[in-house]
Design a protein around this nucleic acid. Sequence first.
DNA 1: CTATACTCGGACAATATAAGTCCGAGTAAG
DNA 2: CTTACTCGGACTTATATTGTCCGAGTATAG
Lengths: 159, 159
Amino acid sequence: MSGGVEWALHCCVVLTASSTPVPAARLAELHDVSGSYLAKQLQSLARAGLIHSVQGKSGGYVLTRAPESITLLDVVRAVDGPGPAFVCTEIRQRGPLATPSSACTGACPVARAMWAAEDAWRQALASVTIADLARDVDVDSGPEALVSVSAWLTGDRDI
Amino acid sequence: MSGGVEWALHCCVVLTASSTPVPAARLAELHDVSGSYLAKQLQSLARAGLIHSVQGKSGGYVLTRAPESITLLDVVRAVDGPGPAFVCTEIRQRGPLATPSSACTGACPVARAMWAAEDAWRQALASVTIADLARDVDVDSGPEALVSVSAWLTGDRDI
DNA sequence: CTATACTCGGACAATATAAGTCCGAGTAAG
DNA sequence: CTTACTCGGACTTATATTGTCCGAGTATAG
């Protein structure tokens, strides 16, 4: 799994704390990661419609939807791509004892089992929202944590 | 996910049909894939103890356990490695507003949610065995399919 | 209205990982 | 004892990920 998923998720959580646009460079500094590379992940989120980009002097990124309606599956699919992790190359139709294609109406048993497991994974991801994560952060680190993040994001840079 | 998982799973299913050792080259010819590369996957399965290698003139690979006691999770872990797909780099402990390490007793909420989804995936894989796949193949392609595979595996090469 | 400074967006390298290949050590058969 | 066939690990290539850069565009400030 792409490591950018972790960055994207953390960015979505902290964007919960700000109603004004936050520049990508500010998010990168907050997390102490490469700003040039984080931009790529944010662009993926923007292409997927999860965040909206505002250009200009005081621009940046804002969540487009309410945090309660953004699931972890949305973020993962936006960053890692919508395709399945297991790809079936139809091995059964190759080799000297290949199954005739006329008998291959549905997916092969191997692919069915692997895709069923992936569906369970997706369902678990779809059952958690960004709002749930933000609430968990409040429980873990106290409500003042996200408040100070919000202040740091919107305030002028303190060097 | 590594593409070798598909090859390894199909090999385990066909090994169900043979009680005598099957060489890696024979398995590769049956599936029409690179023999040199399939050897690597089979070595992973052997290291994990799922299959046993027999050397010498009429050697090859045999399943060590009964097909009913080999789960898809066993095979996936053997080929793709036991580590989790999502790796937490502890972003919360970095940057100007880093969470103090004293407050980080458990995993961060992001990692917890991602790992919970992976657990659901693992549980789904652990609930299916190689024997289940072999039975599904019988249902899909008829019982004669695996019988002919068994004959082709054990018989002398027909050019 | 104009100039400016700050933003995103996509195109361009470097690196890590997966895919594929090869030859030597070892072993059972003849 | 010889031989031929097997696995096992080391090596090379291809691909995807990670990381970086500069140009297009826009809201702000004068």
